[in-house]
C-alpha cells in the first residue's frame, strides 16, 4: 500500500507577520519557513505505518514552487521515500478547490490508497483541502484524528467531534485522514536520513502531466479571493490593578460587573 502525504510550507508559528501591500497578503521577504506542524504529524504517522509494514512506500505531494523543495527534503530526511512537486504557471492563484483538483489528479495517477494530511495549514487556517481532495476522489475522509489504526483494507480513527465528544470512526480504504496534535510525536531527521534525502528523487509535474485542464485551476477558476489585508485591530489599552491582593480582586470583580458588564 502506498501512502501519500500532503505537505505545505508555512511561516514558522513564531514569525512576526507584516503587511506591505494590503491587496497582496503578507510580506514574505524575511519569513522563516517550516513544514506545517500538522503535516509533520501526517508524515510521522505514514512513516510509522511503513515501519510497521502496513505500507510499502510514503510519497510526499505538494503544490508549490521550487523554494518548497527545502521542506520536501526535510520530509525525505525524516524517511519519506519520494516526492511529487506540482508546479505550473496555470496553478497560480488557485483557491483551495483549485489546489485540491491538482492534488487529487496527482494522487489518482499514482495509485495511492491512504492520504495523510494536516487538519489545517497554519497560514490561511482554511482546513479545506483534505476534505475537498476526498470528495473529488469519492473517498472517505476522517478529520482531526488523534489515533489511527489500519487494518486489512479498513481503518479505525479516533477524532474530536463537536461539543468535546470523542468519536471512534471506521471506514474502508482508500481514505483521507487529517492529523491533529497528539496523533504522535514527530521524529527528528537523523544525520543518515539527511544524507540519504539528498539522493532521493523529487518529481515535478505540471497540468499536462496530470491531464488536467488548466482552466479548472488557477486564478481564473478561483471562486474565493482575499484582499484588504491588515494586522489585527488594536485592543483598547488595559489596566494593571493596584493594591494588595484582596483589593485588586475586589476591583477586578467590580470592573467586570460595572465596566465590562459581563459578571
Amino acid at each position: 500500500m502506498k501512502i501519500g502525504v500532503l505537505l505545505k510550507q508555512v511561516p514558522s508559528s513564531d514569525e512576526q507577520i507584516k503587511i506591505a501591500d494590503p491587496s497582496a497578503g503578507i510580506a514574505t521577504g524575511d519569513i522563516k519557513w517550516t513544514i506545517n506542524p500538522y503535516d509533520e504529524y501526517a508524515v510521522e504517522e505514514a512513516l510509522r505505518l511503513k515501519d510497521a509494514k502496513k505500507a510499502s512506500s510514503v510519497v510526499v505531494y505538494t503544490v508549490g514552487g521550487k523554494a518548497v523543495e527545502q521542506r520536501i527534503r526535510d520530509a525525505l530526511a525524516m524517511g519519506a521515500d519520494g516526492a511529487v512537486r506540482l508546479d505550473d504557471p496555470a496553478f497560480e492563484g488557485s483557491d483551495c478547490l483549485g489546489i485540491s483538483r491538482i492534488l487529487s489528479a496527482a494522487l489518482k495517477a499514482d495509485d495511492v490508497s491512504l492520504v495523510m494530511a494536516g487538519k489545517q495549514a497554519i497560514d490561511g487556517d482554511n482546513a479545506q483541502v483534505p476534505m475537498m481532495v476526498a470528495e473529488l476522489l469519492d473517498w472517505a475522509c476522517v478529520g482531526v484524528v488523534s489515533k489511527l489504526e489500519i487494518g486489512d483494507g479498513s481503518l479505525k480513527a479516533w477524532r474530536a467531534s463537536g461539543g468535546g465528544v470523542q468519536d471512534v470512526v471506521e471506514a474502508n480504504l482508500p481514505a483521507v485522514i487529517t492529523a491533529d496534535k497528539g496523533l504522535n510525536e514527530p521524529r527528528y531527521a537523523s544525520l543518515r536520513g539527511i544524507m540519504m534525502a539528498k539522493r532521493k528523487k523529487i518529481l515535478v509535474k505540471g497540468a499536462a502531466d496530470l491531464g488536467l485542464d488548466g482552466a479548472t485551476v488557477g486564478a481564473g477558476a478561483a471562486h474565493v479571493v482575499e484582499d484588504a489585508w491588515s494586522l489585527p485591530p488594536a485592543r483598547p489599552a488595559g489596566r494593571i490593578l493596584e493594591g494588595d491582593n484582596a483589593q485588586r480582586v475586589q476591583e477586578l470583580v467590580r470592573a467586570l460587573h460595572e465596566e465590562a458588564k459581563i459578571i
Binding site: 483551495c96 478547490l97 482546513a127 479545506q128 476534505m131 473529488l136 478529520g143 474530536a160 467531534s161
Partner: peptide, 23 residues
C-alpha cells in the same frame, strides 16, 4: 464553525464546485 460544519463544508464546496470561506 463547529467541528461538524468545518468537516462537511469543504466536501459540499467540492461537490457543488463553489467557493467556501472558513471561520
Amino acid at each position: 464553525a463547529s467541528a461538524e460544519a468545518k468537516d462537511a463544508f469543504p466536501r459540499l464546496a467540492a461537490r457543488l464546485g463553489v467557493g467556501y470561506a472558513t471561520e
